[in-house]
Design a protein around this nucleic acid. Structure first.
Lengths: 199, 199
DNA sequence: CCTACCGATCGGTAGG
DNA sequence: CCTACCGATCGGTAGG
């Protein structure tokens, strides 16, 4: 039954996403994944046809999980500043909730493939671009002058919090990222003239 | 001669650092490194004794390069705000100058090993901690209230610029990181009372 | 989805 | 620093 095959495929990919978030998309080996799932290597392999296709399918599954856990909940907030804040909060929450076993899947995949041209890099790029695009879009709606600048800052603070937490087991990165974002958002409600003070 | 062996070892490690910044410390294989350097695998291997020792030596060599290219030049500036700014500028410069073939060695190594306990992770941790510690130390001397917060922000913006540059070939991250840091440093010269406005 | 197998490459060793 | 080799694992295939 094609339904059963689809279920098996989904089971494989849920595990693949967590393995890849810890060991990387290259460290995600077919043999290891198969033995963890108590399947034969070739049985698992048949669902994808090549390691690259497995990597691409894993990225797709990670995107679906990120959408479900971070993007969609924030979309209950009205567009603009409220949704932008919800994205930032939601991202930090998603790290703390360990939605992926090894911290942010995208941060790991981006660092791993950012210098290796090919379909895998393109897929990672599309995922990260989508996230940064959402941040920028909401910043623009919120009336931020340089929305791309704010999106870059929010994105960067998320990366920093992820590194602090995974590398140092230091949860203070979450608080620090929140503080930086809140300070930045607070500035937005200041009258434009106030911005000239320090310049 | 022990001198010749040391020279060979240094040559190996210079290459290893660049390979690792692109392919990762796990993707740094002894066979590949040997063939690139036109050495036998076992000849290269003999310098280190295990792959883990090669990885640790590679991290050491990367630390020396980072010290030479980023830390040391900034240390010509007086301690405090000037040196903090020099660290940030120097870091962004070092990315643009392609001091490592694959962008920031530390960003790549941290993402790769942040979930894998062991000596390699410990060494990466020590390197990143040293960098963040420098930032925090100078922020403290500059009289910043929450020096750790500022160090976290500066560190994060560097990570973000690195990702933009490597993943998207987007140089605007450098400008954006500089803008964010300059805005933040500009706030520091404002009278304390001004900080209360947005709170 | 399985067993059985392929060539290539991995980290590492023996012996010089 | 070399040649020659080891067992294990890699991605992938044949055939069912």
């Amino acid at each position: 039954m094609t339904t059963k095959a689809a279920t098996t495929r989904a089971t494989i990919l849920e595990r693949a996403v967590d393995v890849a978030s810890v060991e990387g998309l290259e460290g995600l080996t077919i043999g290891r994944l198969a033995s963890e799932l108590r399947m034969s290597k070739s049985g698992l392999f048949a669902h994808f046809g090549s390691k690259e296709e497995l990597q691409l399918a894993t990225i797709e599954a990670a995107a679906a999980r990120f959408l479900r856990e971070v993007i969609a909940p924030a979309q209950r907030e009205p567009e603009g500043a409220a949704r932008l804040r919800a994205y930032c909060e939601g991202y930090l929450d998603y790290l703390q909730r360990k939605v992926f076993a090894g911290g942010c899947f995208w941060a790991a995949a981006a660092a791993e493939f950012d210098d290796r041209p090919g379909p895998v890099r393109d897929a990672v790029r599309a995922g990260v671009l989508g996230w940064m695009g959402e941040l920028e879009h909401q910043a623009r709606i919120a009336g931020v002058g340089d929305a791309a600048e704010l999106a870059f800052e929010a994105y960067s603070l998320g990366l920093g919090a992820n590194t602090c937490w995974r590398l140092f087991a230091d949860e203070r990165g979450f608080k620090r990222a929140r503080a930086a974002i809140e300070r930045r958002l607070a500035e937005l409600s200041m009258p434009p003239v106030a911005h000239g003070l320090g310049a």
